[in-house]
Each structure stands twice: as C-alpha cells, then as structure tokens.
Design a protein around this nucleic acid. Structure first.
Lengths: 381, 381
DNA sequence: TGAACTTCGTTAGGAAGTTAACTAACGAAG
DNA sequence: CTTCGTTAGTTAACTTCCTAACGAAGTTCA
C-alpha cells in the first residue's frame, strides 16, 4: 500500500488558517470558523470553497439549532490525511494513528519485540490514498537535534537501538519527529488531562526514573541539548560537607529506592513484603505500617523535587505522574513539603496515566500534520 | 513641567512596524527599513511619510556610501518621546532616561535616600513637550501581577516601602512596570552583554542573595507568582537523612557565607582577614592561601547551583554575575563542577556588572515605549 | 566629459482581505 | 398563513500591501 506524500496545491494564507481551526474544532459552521480564525465571513467563504476544492474539507451536515437560518457544517475532507504516533516504552510499544482532527483511526499495544510489525500493521490500516503527514516517535531519552538532510532525528545512545529497530518500518519521505516521552505525556495532560486550559505547568513523572516535562505558553521546553527537565542530574546529595554524585538523585527517589526501603522495613516484620509499588500503595491505603510511613516519606521526597522545580520555574501547577508519582495518596505530603519550602503551587495527580505518552505524541503529530497542510511543504521544526 | 501622554493618531500597521524597526536600528534608510521590516519599498515610503507627518520620524541626512543613488537616512522624530528606568538597589538608586532608540538622555546614581528627588530631576531633564511613554522600576523582590485599573503594580512586602517612596515622584497617567532586578540584568546581558545573539540562557547572580534570570526565546520567564529563578528556595541541605530548611541555600552560598568562612580560615593564620569579596578575590588571584582554596570551594558551590539550573532548564549558556559571581577566577571551577554533574553548558562571566539592572530596565522600558507608539494605546503588559 | 552601471524612490496594476449592505432561509407569534 | 426577527451567506466598494516597471540621482571608467 502506498502512502502518497502531500502534493497538496499551496493554500492561501486564509485557507490555511481556516483549515487549522477546522482541524482543531473537528467540525464547524462558517460563522464559527470566522470567529475562531479571526477572519471575515467573505474570506471564510472563499477559504472553505478552496478547501472543498482540494478535498481538504467537506460539507458534513447542517446545524439546525436555534433561531434563524441554519448553517452548513463542515468537517475535514478525505485529502487531509493522517498522522501516526509511536511510544517506544521500556516494556510495551504503543501505536496510534489519527486524523488531523485528532480522531483515533488505529490503535495498537504490543510487547516491545513486535514494535516494527505493529507499526507496519498500523500504517496498513490507515486510509489509503490520503497522505501520511507526520510521524512522532516518543522515546525515554534526551532527543538530539535535527540531522541535516533527511529530516529524521537520531536518538542518543540510551534509546538508539530501539529506535533503529522501528525506523525500518517507517515509510520514507514522511517527516519523523523524535520526542522525549515525558514531554509527550506533559502535552497529553495539557490538552486532555489535569492541565487543561493552562498555559504553563510542569509534569513531574516519578517511576523507575524521574523526569519533568515543562510547558511554557503552551509549548514544550526542550532545552539546548534537548535535556530540559532531566531532573536526574539535580545535584544530590547536597550539603555543606557532601559531594553531589552524578545521577544519584534518581537512585534515591525513584521507585527502585522505594521498593528497596520496603524490603529493608519488612525484614523486621512478618508478613509478605510488597513486590511492586502498587502493592505498597494498596497496603498504605489500608493504613498498614510500615507501608504508610514509607509512602509518607516518599511523598516528602517528591515534594522536595517539586520544590526544586518551583524554585527555578515557579510554574503555578505541577502534575504528578508515573508509576509511583500518580497515586493521589501522595498529594497531601507533597503539598505540605512543597508549601513549606517554596512558592504557592497547585499540585494534582495525572488524569491520563500510562497512555499519556502516546496520546501526547499523537497530539504533537496532529499539530505537525496540520502545519504540513497549512504551510504547503514538509515541516522542518 | 508637563509630560503629555501620547495622543498619537493611530498608526497603520505597516507604519507601526517601520517605527519599531527604526527605533531598534536608531537610524536607517528606506531600503534598510524595507528589508528589516519585511515590507516592500512602496509600503515603506508610505509608512515613512506617515511617520514624518506625525513627527515620529525625521529625515536626518543622506547615506553616500557605495555606488548608485544615495539614500535618505531617517531617525526618530521629536514626537517619539522618551522612557525612564529606575533601579532601586539596596544601597544606591540608579535612574536612566532614554529615547525610544535606546540613546541615553539622562543618568543619575544616588544613595537610596535621595531616590525620589533623583527621579524628579531626571523627569525634569527629559525633553519637554514629547510624551513619556513608559516607566520601569527594578526591585530586588518578586513582582506581583497587575493591579487592575491603575496599570501600576505594587511590590510585595520586601521592597514595598522603597517602591512607595519613589512612586510619589512618578507622573500620573504613564504606565508603570515593576520588574525583578535580576531579570533586568539578564535582559542587559541579552542585548548588550555576554548573551548577545542568544535566544535562551540563564543569568545566575551570586551576591548577598542568589537569583536567576531566565530568558527563553528572547523573553524573560516570570513564573506564576513572578518568582521564577528565585533559587534561594531550592531544597537545601538535601540528603537521605537531612531535612531541607527554607532559604538555607542563600545563607550557604551567598557572599555572607563566603566572608564568614574567610573569617574562620584566617583565625588560624596571621595577616589581615579580607573584609570584602573583592579583597578575597584579589588575594586569591595572587595565589595566596587560604584565599585560593576558599575561592575554589565557592566556585564548586556555584557550579552545583548552575547544575541545578541546567538539570531543570538545559539553557545552553549560563552567565555569572553579582558581587561574588562575576569574577572570572570562578570560571574553571564552575565549569568543571557543572560539567561533572550536568549537561554541556557554556559558562561565561557577566560583561556589564553593576549597571546591568538599570541598563536592562531601560531596555525593557524602551520596548514598552515602542509598543505604546505602535499599538496606539497604553500597553497593559 | 559623457556613457554605462547601480541603487533609490515613485507610479501603476493586481491580489487578498475587510466592512457594509443586501438577499436568503428558518422559527415563532399573531 | 402571513409577518417579523434572527441568522447565514453573497455581493460590492474600499483598504492595504505586493510586484513590476520606470524615472531619478548618484558613481565609475574610458
């Protein structure tokens, strides 16, 4: 099956703006488009005619709601095409294909070993004949900057092999964008999670590793090395008479440390030691010791991490996610430690969970795809 | 003396763009303006005519450089007006009045007690008849958000009284913008200091207090509470078995701590103990112990601070400033500790020094003033 | 000194978008 | 069933800016 790469005729500026707004809204009437795009009625009429001609928009019904003449409703047309997002997680690979209005077309969730096949299957299941406009791959690593020429971006050492294994399944000629998985999850929280309506916030993920996704003015902050939010490199331990060691913080506040402490605590008791973070949190929810105090202590640690973030960024909102971070039991402890140390900052738990990374990657892919349409050519980022 | 507030007739969009470009360049020919503003020659001609009519631009000579017809050179006209910047420092108050092209019109540097008088004198010395278009006041405190109505912003507790003492000298009806002094100094480094040409960097100031000015994409990051970069609230000390205390870091890495440690070290030696940071750095520059090792240790501390910043922001460049931070002797130590702990980040010393805050505040005021002209009305931020 | 060249600035025509006013379609009230 | 208010969509005149071409004013070189 062939995925044709956009030979869309160059759109006028207003048609591009209208398309972007239509993609965001999913479907809309001309007056709605005019108001959303900040254009006049005649201009929108012309733009819609242009989009219909290019099969980028189609008349999909009429809105007969209130008083007055009923308006024609438009939606995305068949030529608008689709995008695909891949989350290369440590254990599982998740794939999502979406239309440019964000509607889900294909979904897959497989063990990592089947990643390339899953991508191929997803590509085959997308509507043929319409262009594939963007590919976003989320990885658990710092993402390097653009490689000149191809438009693809190589992963650094940590996630390089995984990415290479999947990249053979990607169709040539379509722009590929690599993005950090925590950044993707932050975008998911921004658009359909706990940070909806915000412009600036931090998404703090605590699992085996720790990471921060920073959103400022609706944009992900990537940093000069693509390493913004890589909190593992915060100086730790840090005191008058102690030397910080590299990446020591992750070993101390990550979920491994939590389970290690649990194992130590359970040595002095009888009863089975919890083997996963979920088991530990379940015991703590019942008020059992030593689970409760271990969780309380973890909350204080997370609160300190959040305080470090607030001291630098003052984001106003921190969303907690990750295997040990997302549990609402942490909230009181995190809030009190953060409040004690730093600036007034709202703290809430993630609303999306494990799917956050694919969902956010798909959001990013949709944005790139829309850009691809409105700017006529392939987007370089 | 009356400072008339802009009753500038509303400019067309292109004339506004040309004015902004002309203010930035100071003076320019029409072809230069066309290229800088991204407009065509006829449009620039029309815009310049409009600006000349409003006395916002004047013909200031001809450029007879190379081959071909010589172009007319234009500069800002008398109606473009001026702005004023005030740095309310802990000991001294600095005032600068500037034209909208950034040229210095008035300058003052007085003890804090004379602040209000100095502001009044500076206002009196500005060209009469032309509008005063913006006032920026830099203070050593977190700046709260806009007070509705007046357009003025109150300081919080720390710098409130100082600001109130000066605000009585400010003419009514002119938009006042309060800004953190470290943020101002960062802007100075961005425009005419060590960060020229950058879009993103951090300005780390180490003096009695510690602070960070964050510039992302050419814009200062202020944060939800105006507290972005208030590093004093980084958790410290931070270790498995220690409780961070609020603002403990400032007491440990600020210049007071450095001098306290010097006093302790000199107890065991004869010779006079250095009483200021400058004296200590001078001794270290000669290679004298214990000054040398005290400075080396300070450098490592600053490097850890820089590492904390790099772990969150990955800014690519950190400029060191402040009474103990700006000394180039620190650079090797800071670079090695930062390199050991965190991401590849350039580290350089401030190129501006004590005047940074006023200079940056003046830059900000000029930007606000230009906005005031191009957007016709008073700017709300 | 004058021809050739180069750059400045203006004039003329056209593209794109706005406002304003008009026509078309629909629901509700008399 | 007509009439009125409301909202959708179109037409027309005007604004703004661009491109293209041309005249004007310099410089360089024979």
């Amino acid at each position: 099956m062939e995925h044709v790469v956009a030979e869309t005729p160059r759109l006028t500026e207003s048609a591009g703006a209208v398309f972007a707004v239509l993609a965001q809204a999913g479907s809309a009437t001309r007056p709605q488009l005019a108001s959303l795009a900040g254009l006049s009625k005649p201009t929108v009429s012309a733009a819609v005619a242009e989009l219909e001609g290019a099969r980028l928009a189609t008349h999909s019904g009429t809105a007969s709601g209130g008083t007055g003449r009923s308006a024609a409703v438009y939606g995305l047309g068949p030529a608008s095409g689709s995008v695909i997002a891949v989350d290369l997680g440590p254990a599982r690979t998740r794939v999502r294909g979406c239309a440019l209005d964000g509607t889900l077309l294909v979904e897959a969730d497989t063990p990592r070993i089947r990643a390339a096949d899953a991508v191929r299957e997803a590509l085959a299941a997308l509507p043929a004949g319409a262009p594939l406009r963007a590919i976003v791959v989320a990885i658990g690593d710092v993402t390097a900057s653009d490689l000149a020429g191809t438009g693809m971006r190589p992963a650094t050492a940590k996630a390089g092999p995984v990415f290479d294994a999947v990249s053979v399944a990607l169709p040539p000629g379509v722009p590929v964008h690599l993005e950090n998985n925590v950044n993707c999850a932050a975008l998911a929280e921004l658009h359909e999670g706990a940070a909806r309506g915000r412009r600036t916030f931090g998404y703090l993920r605590i699992g085996v590793g720790i990471g921060l996704g920073i959103v400022i003015g609706g944009q992900v902050l990537r940093g000069a090395n693509g390493a913004a939010g890589e909190l593992a490199r915060l100086p730790y331990p840090w005191d008058d008479d102690r030397e910080p060691r590299q990446e020591a913080l992750e070993a101390y506040v990550g979920s491994h440390a939590l389970l290690r402490r649990a194992a130590e605590a359970w040595q002095d008791t009888d009863g089975p030691c919890p083997r996963t973070a979920e088991q530990l949190f379940a015991l703590a929810a019942e008020g059992r010791e030593p689970a409760r105090s271990l969780v309380a202590r973890h909350a204080a640690d997370v609160g300190r991490l959040a305080a470090a973030v607030a001291a630098v960024l003052d984001p106003g909102l921190i969303v907690l996610g990750g295997s040990t971070g997302a549990d609402p039991q942490l909230l009181p402890g995190v809030r009190s430690e953060l409040g004690r140390l730093s600036w007034p900052t709202e703290v809430v738990s993630s609303q999306i969970g494990d799917l956050g990374t694919v969902v956010g990657a798909a959001r990013l892919a949709v944005a790139k795809g829309v850009q691809n349409v409105t700017e006529g050519a392939q987007v370089k980022d």
